[in-house]
Simulated scan of single mutants.
Amino acid sequence: MLRNTTTRYGWAAIILHWLIGLVFIGQFALGWTMVRIASQRTSFELIQLHKSFGFLLLGLVLIRIGWRLASFSPELPEEVGPVERRAAPAVHLALYAAQLVVPLSGWALVSVSVLEIPSMPFSLFVMPHLPFQVSEQAENFWIFGHKWLAYAAIALVVLHILAAFRHHFWLRDVVLVRMISPFFAGRARGPE
Rank of each mutant, 00 (worst) to 15 (best):
V35N: 02
V158I: 15
L46P: 04
W148C: 09
A163M: 10
L49I: 01
H160E: 08
L56A: 14
L176Q: 04
S181N: 09
H92W: 09
G186D: 07
T6G: 07
S181K: 10
L156W: 05
R64G: 02
H146Y: 08
A138M: 14
G66F: 02
F44A: 12
A97M: 09
L16C: 06
F28R: 03
R3F: 12
H167W: 02
G190T: 05
L62P: 04
E78L: 11
H17F: 00
F169H: 13
A138S: 14
L115T: 14
P74H: 00
W170T: 13
W67N: 01
W148F: 14
V80A: 08
G106V: 02
Q40R: 15
A138W: 09
L115W: 11
E75D: 12
I143V: 14
R3M: 11
A13N: 08
L93M: 12
V23C: 06
A108L: 06
A90S: 11
I37L: 08
A90K: 13
L60T: 03
V126W: 03
S181A: 12
P118N: 07
L2C: 05
A87E: 08
E75T: 13
M34W: 00
G59V: 06
S71F: 05
V110M: 10
I161C: 09
F72E: 09
T5W: 06
A185F: 04
A188H: 04
N140L: 11
V177N: 10
H129P: 02
V23I: 15
M127A: 14
L49Y: 01
F125R: 09
L46N: 01
A138V: 11
A98P: 03
L95D: 10
V91C: 10
L62H: 00
V91T: 15
W32L: 12
E139R: 13
A12M: 10
P131A: 13
S111H: 08
A38N: 13
G10K: 07
G66N: 09
Q133M: 12
M120P: 00
V91E: 10
L104S: 06
I143T: 10
F24E: 01
T6R: 12
V157N: 01
A13L: 05
P77L: 06
I161L: 15
S73Y: 00
H146W: 03
H129G: 09
A152Q: 08
P77R: 03
V112D: 00
R172C: 06
L93E: 05
V174G: 04
F122L: 07
E78S: 14
S123K: 13
V80F: 02
F72D: 10
L49R: 04
L104V: 15
P118D: 05
W18H: 05
Y9H: 13
L156S: 08
A94R: 03
L49S: 02
F132K: 05
P82F: 14
L19W: 04
L2Q: 09
E45Q: 14
G54K: 02
V126A: 15
P191R: 13
F132Y: 11
S119Y: 00
I63R: 04
V83Y: 12
S123E: 10
W67I: 08
